[in-house]
């Protein structure tokens, strides 16, 4: 095949793959506006399923739980993970192999093993201590933080690796103490990475179903868990509506992440 032919084939394949990636999401959004209760036939545009959503207390409660869970776990994970990423960078000459293992473990482990380990662990602790760490929002926050921390740490770490290490030396030459260094240099340079990490942690939390499902208690149903039990009874257009809103939220978060990436790239270009 000639170089040109290959290029055109590749471009066609790329657009086909974009269709593959976005078709399922588009279909969910389309059927959320369906005027009849069907997931195969589209009869006309209507907002009735969105109205049904707002009137449903169970859904609003699940929405509230999801937001509380995502916000609190992301805040904790951003603080803990930023410290971890910073430590991994400043002490990288020590070749902390075990630390890399520990950071990659939550990323690679299948989420079912993750959820079940924590569920059996929390249940046993709760049984042994008479109610401490009962399954509920607290155990969910703990579980979410444990898988968010590695992503935050890696994001912060890779941002620091991209910096000129002479900047750190310059700070020391200017007699900045550790606190001044953190306040005037490290935190401002890391701000884009920290903001991006927070949004990443937030979407990871909203995206998670399996780990939430196994560490949740009867009172802490989140949106994904609500959707899961609703589909088990058969997909309703109401589920499509709530799913569409969640897809919209993720797209908004992606736009923010992209904006920060371009701000970074723009600054780099201006500096170089």
């Amino acid at each position: 095949m000639s170089g040109r032919g290959l290029r055109i084939t590749l471009r066609g394949f790329w657009y086909l793959m974009l269709l593959f990636l976005y078709a399922p999401l588009a279909v969910v959004a389309l059927y959320s506006f369906n005027s009849i209760n069907s997931s195969a036939v589209f009869a006309g545009v209507s907002l009735r399923w969105y109205h049904a959503l707002l009137a449903d207390d169970t859904i609003m409660n699940a929405f509230y739980n999801s937001v509380v869970l995502a916000l609190s776990s992301s805040v904790i994970a951003t603080v803990v993970g930023t410290l971890l990423g910073y430590g991994m960078y400043t002490h990288r000459e020590r070749r902390l192999g075990w630390l890399i293992w520990l950071v990659y473990l939550p990323i690679v482990m299948p989420d079912i093993v993750y959820g079940i380990s924590q569920m059996s662990f929390f249940t046993s602790i709760s049984a042994a201590t008479g109610g401490m760490l009962d399954l509920g929002l607290t155990t969910m926050v703990i579980a979410h933080v444990s898988f968010q921390v590695p992503f935050v740490a890696l994001l912060v770490y890779s941002r620091l690796v991209g910096l000129d290490s002479r900047l750190f030396a310059a700070c020391q030459d200017l007699y900045a103490n550790a606190w001044q260094r953190a306040w005037y240099f490290i935190l401002p340079t890391l701000r884009p990475a920290i903001v991006a990490a927070f949004f990443l942690a937030f979407t990871l939390s909203i995206d998670d179903f399996v780990i939430s499902f196994f560490t949740a208690g009867p009172e802490s149903t989140t949106l994904p868990i609500f959707i899961w039990s609703a589909i088990k009874k058969g997909v309703t257009p109401e589920v499509n509506a709530i799913a569409t809103l969640m897809i919209g939220a993720v797209f908004a978060a992606a736009a923010v992440a992209l904006a920060f990436q371009y701000v970074r790239a723009g600054r780099r270009n201006a500096a170089g």
Partner: peptide, 26 residues
């Protein structure tokens, strides 16, 4: 980003999308 964004949406929601696309009568 275009490749990654769909994987940021909830796993269960992505499965619903495929249920819609592949269901009988689609």
């Amino acid at each position: 980003l275009a490749v990654v964004v769909p994987s940021w949406t909830n796993q269960v929601i992505r499965a619903i999308g495929w249920m819609n696309i592949l269901s009988p009568g689609s």
